[in-house]
Design a protein around this nucleic acid. Structure first.
Lengths: 256, 256
DNA sequence: CGCTGTGAAGCGATTCACAGCC
DNA sequence: GGCTGTGAATCGCTTCACAGCG
């Protein structure tokens, strides 16, 4: 972990907790919406509820960035948008490649949320020669043979893998060898990468499985409530359980 | 926050930590692969590395499920597959509906990972009448007017929202009113739902933004290394950074 | 002897609660 | 008076390290 022992206790700037980083995009989205409605300032309470977190957490998060609010008033929307964008590195634009142009790859290519926030799809890449030259979302699909040269020419450092699981590690290796240092992996595979390369994983079926777990638990509780046996002693009073809650639960996306 | 105070401290069995639940699908995937290769038993070390976590975490996770291993030997693959499946509620099959059949909805409909693990796409639903009747992934697309009846007839309790952001809350409300109690939301919107309904959110652009943050930090560190000013005191010795690491980082998917 | 299962320690994130400033 | 910024308390997850068992 970078950071490491740390001489300097906790001091300035360079120590934003991961949990906070993961929420900054949420705040940014909410702020952008406010900005579009020309709302000039916002309180921690309002912004927190728009972002789906609680206000103490939000204030703590912002405190890591600096003192950008005004007591008694709130935060200046435009100013915060800028500060968060800068902190996230969105003031520069990041060329990304998407490898694997199936439905999911196409969905990502078409996804407007990218371009709007500092990301530019530099190329779509697929191993199927039949796709080469086709246009998806107005971008030409190139053959995977060109992967290295595309990355090199465009200075790409972020790659998105939307291939089938079987091809993912191979593609990953090539991306890394070509100079990519951040990877967003949608394939259902644990990628291994050298130190210094970040991997984040998004797995659709894992999310569903987690929902199924809670769904099952809810069903069990409902039963327990009807037939309050001693066994049920625990489930019944719990009532609402941990459910919902706009606050953090445990996620399923992770690095590496 | 639903949740609330909660009386009972932490007691028995029904208390699997969220972080553990989020990893069970990972273990299950690794175990399934082993099972297909007819590997009879596996040690915590081997399984952990296949799943991309460390072995202490894995053993602790399994300890919440029960004592399913054999000291000096390891875990029986088939038995563990069964136990985890049961715990996750995958021994029953869950009918799900996907609302919003754009590229992403289609990608999900085609995604093999669903059917293979207890999920069945009961219906594809879209607001566009032009799509109604079309087949996607061998399933007929139905009009959103039928949403309530579809959910009712099929006993659907899990819904997936892949509509544009603007339609998400509306769709969510109808799903919930019709009886859905778990929602997987791909729209870039914070959904509000009543207590007792679980929401998990997957946001593609948020993941990229988190990568961008780290990418930026890496670039800054590289610079600091070249020109070792006093400011750089911290970055330089860090070397590899926090990067990689098969262990948990902070995710961006969360309930509600 | 090897590997699991688990108390206990450690650590990071969340929440509380209030001092400080506008 | 209202709302931010933040130490201090708390909570939950991770990691350690080893006892216990096959």
């Amino acid at each position: 972990m970078a950071t490491g022992r740390n001489h300097r206790p906790a001091t300035r700037s360079r120590g934003i907790p991961e949990a906070t980083v993961a929420r900054l995009p949420l705040y940014l989205r909410a702020l952008t919406a406010l900005s579009e409605r020309s709302v000039p300032t916002v309180s921690s309470e309002e912004l927190a509820s728009a972002a789906g977190v609680n206000s103490a957490k939000l204030r703590k998060d912002f405190s890591y960035l600096g003192s950008y609010g005004t007591r008694g008033v709130g935060y200046d929307v435009e100013y915060l948008v800028y500060q968060i964008s800068r902190e996230l590195g969105l003031t520069q634009d990041w060329p990304v490649v998407i490898v694997g142009i199936g439905n999911l790859g196409a969905a990502l290519a078409n996804y407007g949320g990218f371009a709007s926030r500092g990301f530019r799809v530099a190329a779509l890449i697929d191993a199927d020669p039949a796709l080469s030259g086709r246009q998806v979302a107005g971008i030409e699909v190139r053959h995977v043979d060109e992967l290295e040269s595309i990355i090199d020419t465009n200075g790409v450092s972020i790659g998105v893998i939307t291939t089938p699981g079987g091809a993912a590690q191979q593609v990953c290796d090539r991306l890394v060898a070509a100079g990519v240092t951040s990877i967003l992996n949608f394939a259902p595979t644990v990628l291994s990468v050298p130190d210094g390369v970040d991997v984040r994983k998004v797995d659709l079926s894992i999310e569903l499985q987690i929902l199924a777990f809670h769904e099952q638990r809810k069903a069990a509780e409902a039963l327990a409530q009807e037939v309050p046996e001693p066994l049920a002693a625990e489930a019944a009073p719990a009532g609402s359980g941990r459910d919902q809650g706009p606050d953090g639960d445990i996620p399923a996306v992770m690095p590496a």
